[in-house]
């Protein structure tokens, strides 16, 4: 069974994702209005493709997506 956090880019960073569930999943809250995101590769809230990064948009449809 695919891991839940695998649907998010391995380089996507946000505060909650530095914590894990008891099952070891990174915690993402895509519906949060207060979550700030960064891309580990660019070090900024913009991806290598020049688009903003967040849990709703950093999926497999972006060319810069990296699997966890």
């Amino acid at each position: 069974m695919p891991r839940l956090s695998a649907r998010f880019c391995a380089l996507l960073r946000t505060k909650t994702a530095y914590y894990r569930t008891p099952d070891g999943e990174r915690i993402f809250k895509p519906d949060s209005s207060t979550a700030c995101y960064t891309c580990l590769k660019t070090q900024r809230p913009v991806g290598p493709d020049g688009r903003p990064v967040d849990a709703q948009s950093c999926g497999t449809d972006r060319g810069c997506f990296e699997q966890e």
Binding site: S32, S33, T34, A35, C36, Y37, T38, P45, V46, P52
Partner: peptide, 12 residues
Amino acid sequence: SGGINGGAGSAD
């Protein structure tokens, strides 16, 4: 506005 970032919600 979070500048170039998001996360500017305040409604919780």
